[in-house]
Simulated assay, not measured.
Amino acid sequence: MKNFKLLAILLLLLSLFLGACTNEQDAVSPQQDGKASDKTTASKEDKNEGKKGENTASADIPEAVQEPLKIAAIMQFSIGTFSSQYIQGVKEQVEAFGGEVQVYNADNDLAKMATHLDTAINQNVDGILIDHGRADALAPGVKKALEKGIPVVSFDNDLNLPGVTVIDQDDYSLAWNSLKTLAQDLNGEGEIVYVWVGGFTPMERRNTIYEAFKERYPNIKEVAKFGNASANTALDTQTQMEAILKQYPNKGDIDAVFAPWDEFAKGVTRAIEQAGRTEIKVYGIDLSDEDLQLIQKENSPWVATAATDPAEVGRAQVRFLYQKVAGEETPAIYSLDPHLVKKSDLPGETISMDEIGDHVKSWGTSDAGVSPWMNALTEKAE
């Protein structure tokens, strides 16, 4: 009996203990759930606030570019209309951002180009653009600029230095687009003239593709090769092509000319026209308003060219430079997409470079080096 009473007392105490625990849990659980919910809500709010801050910051103008920048553009040469339209694009973009640009032309003298680079560094410019040139001449000066905290963006050269963005026109694609069109038009067989000069990074790259082209199309034979860069390359090329035409006076002696620079293409086109040998077709690289006029002429031998918009090249280079000044990451290398422009794709009436985009898809547009704050910077500068 005593055992039974003791057991009953123990069961009663146990039930009271369990009830108390249950009540305590019921009292505590909502508070814990509430705390967890508060934490989750706070976490979401923090994240959203962070995203909101990021979006706001992306539209704000970075402090480093709020004041007008002083930019130096160091050019190896300014031969031909491609160079003039390129520098026009540079000036347009810098001025749109409210800055100013000083252009230094080295007249195809690398030593002079290196001196111009030193001059710009000593003037403590905010950024440096380099057009063409060679690393062996420019690398010491570029390193000096970087040590002083002056960002550098170069175009069409062989610089390979940490911190420098090097842009190009994808010279390999340019050459292949033009050469492939030539080969297809000749059905893989014929005699051609090659106009070329060494010593320039884009020319060296285009020549690499030309050598591969000869392997790919062994029945296309090179009958003559010449070329040089001078103060009047187009006229010199015209004179040299006239001499070649005298060496090969008969129709069928020459089927086509590959001219991987528009200054070359202009010269050979004029020589062919004046000799009345318009059966010889010209395949070039690069494009400008002057080039377009030659291509669009009736019976023009210049039938195709691979190109990028030179003004957009300049604008993109400036945008990358402003990104660097603003402290944003930029790629070490960037190739703009080239386009093949064929005479047969152009309208009957004469058009300018500004109208090419109506006939060649994506011409003259690029998102290279674009940051969200650049629109605000442009509006501020207006």
Score class of each variant (00 low, 15 high):
369 G>R: 03
366 S>W: 00
189 E>H: 07
315 R>C: 10
92 E>Q: 15
267 G>A: 09
122 N>H: 10
10 L>H: 12
75 M>W: 03
164 V>N: 01
59 A>C: 05
308 T>S: 13
328 E>L: 14
91 K>F: 00
302 W>P: 07
309 D>Q: 09
74 I>E: 02
16 L>E: 10
158 D>S: 07
290 E>S: 15
129 L>Q: 04
307 A>H: 02
67 E>T: 13
215 E>V: 13
207 N>L: 10
100 E>F: 02
245 L>G: 08
181 T>Y: 04
377 L>N: 05
154 S>R: 08
183 A>Q: 00
206 R>L: 00
290 E>C: 06
177 N>S: 07
167 I>M: 13
255 D>E: 11
370 V>Q: 12
186 L>G: 01
204 E>V: 12
94 V>P: 00
273 E>G: 07
9 I>Q: 12
231 A>Q: 10
261 W>E: 04
52 K>D: 11
11 L>M: 11
27 A>E: 12
44 K>E: 12
305 T>G: 03
343 K>W: 04
375 N>D: 14
354 D>R: 13
13 L>M: 13
83 S>C: 14
269 T>K: 05
73 A>G: 02
197 V>C: 02
298 E>R: 13
275 A>I: 07
313 V>F: 07
222 E>V: 15
250 N>L: 02
26 D>K: 15
104 Y>A: 08
284 G>F: 07
240 Q>V: 01
285 I>K: 04
302 W>D: 06
241 M>D: 06
228 N>E: 11
145 A>I: 06
177 N>R: 04
126 D>E: 09
280 I>S: 08
103 V>E: 03
329 E>N: 10
279 E>L: 07
382 E>V: 08
339 H>M: 06
287 L>K: 00
15 S>G: 10
67 E>F: 03
143 K>A: 12
3 N>I: 03
57 A>R: 09
325 V>N: 01
312 E>G: 08
270 R>E: 10
382 E>P: 00
296 Q>N: 09
129 L>Y: 05
84 S>P: 01
324 K>G: 00
118 D>L: 05
50 G>A: 14
221 K>W: 02
51 K>T: 09
320 F>Y: 11
104 Y>M: 06
14 L>E: 09
118 D>W: 01
166 V>A: 07
178 S>G: 03
75 M>G: 00
194 Y>P: 01
316 A>W: 00
136 D>I: 07
185 D>G: 00
265 A>L: 04
7 L>H: 03
158 D>Q: 02
157 N>M: 11
113 M>F: 02
191 E>I: 01
311 A>M: 06
352 S>H: 08
333 I>L: 13
87 I>M: 14
359 H>D: 02
